[in-house]
Simulated assay, not measured.
Amino acid sequence: MDIKLKIAQRIKELREQRGLTQEALAYKSDVDRTYMNHVEKGKRNISIINLEKIIVNGLEVSLLEFFNVKVFENGK
């Protein structure tokens, strides 16, 4: 699976667990709502800076917690 899709899947999973809309997550992350939509669909090549904003500020999880799941194991 493409890394953009893995990240998109993980963001959506955590967003839904927290009961956030894409708009609410975008606001908390200080990114545009349409940008968030494209990120969650795996259509954007997200920058490291925006990825950190979404994970740490928006989803309120550490980078370790975000990436410490099976989908990211072994880089495959």
Rank of each mutant, 00 (worst) to 15 (best):
V39R: 03
T21A: 03
Y35M: 04
I7E: 07
Q9S: 13
A26R: 06
N57L: 06
L20I: 06
L51W: 07
E65S: 13
L5N: 15
N50D: 14
E65R: 08
F66Y: 01
R44H: 10
K28G: 01
K4I: 07
Y35R: 06
E13G: 07
D32A: 13
G58D: 02
V71E: 15
E16L: 15
L20W: 08
N50C: 09
L51Q: 11
I48K: 08
I7T: 09
I49S: 12
D2R: 11
L5F: 12
I11A: 02
L25A: 08
I54P: 01
G42W: 01
I54Q: 03
S62P: 02
E23A: 15
L20P: 08
E40P: 03
K41E: 12
I11Y: 04
K43I: 10
I7Y: 00
S62Y: 10
A26V: 06
T34N: 13
E60N: 15
R15S: 07
E16P: 03
T21E: 03
A8H: 05
R44I: 11
R33F: 00
I49G: 09
R10H: 11
F72S: 04
I7W: 01
D30P: 01
R18K: 15
I11G: 00
A8C: 08
R15P: 07
D30Q: 13
I46N: 04
T34E: 14
V31E: 09
I48P: 00
K28H: 08
R18G: 05
N37C: 10
I7A: 05
F72N: 01
K4R: 15
D2H: 10
E23C: 07
E16G: 04
A26Y: 01
E73M: 07
E23W: 04
G42Q: 03
M36R: 04
L64V: 13
K12C: 12
K6F: 00
N45I: 09
D32T: 09
E40S: 06
L14W: 06
E52Q: 12
K70C: 09
V31G: 10
T21Y: 09
I11D: 01
I7P: 05
R33K: 14
V39K: 02
K41W: 02
N74E: 15
A26S: 09
I55Q: 00
A24D: 05
N57F: 03
I49W: 11
M1Q: 13
F66P: 00
Y27L: 14
A8T: 09
L59N: 00
A24Y: 07
K53N: 12
V39I: 11
L14M: 14
D2V: 10
R44A: 10
T21I: 06
F67C: 05
I7L: 09
I46P: 04
L5G: 13
Q17Y: 13
K53D: 06
N74L: 05
M1N: 11
K12I: 12
H38F: 07
E16M: 12
N68C: 12
E13Y: 14
I48A: 14
F66R: 04
F66C: 02
N68W: 09
K28Y: 06
T34A: 11
D2W: 03
H38W: 01
G75Y: 00
V71F: 09
L59I: 07
D2L: 11
K76E: 15
V71A: 10
K43Q: 13
E23P: 05
N45Y: 01
R44V: 13
V69W: 07
F72I: 02
N68S: 15
E52C: 09
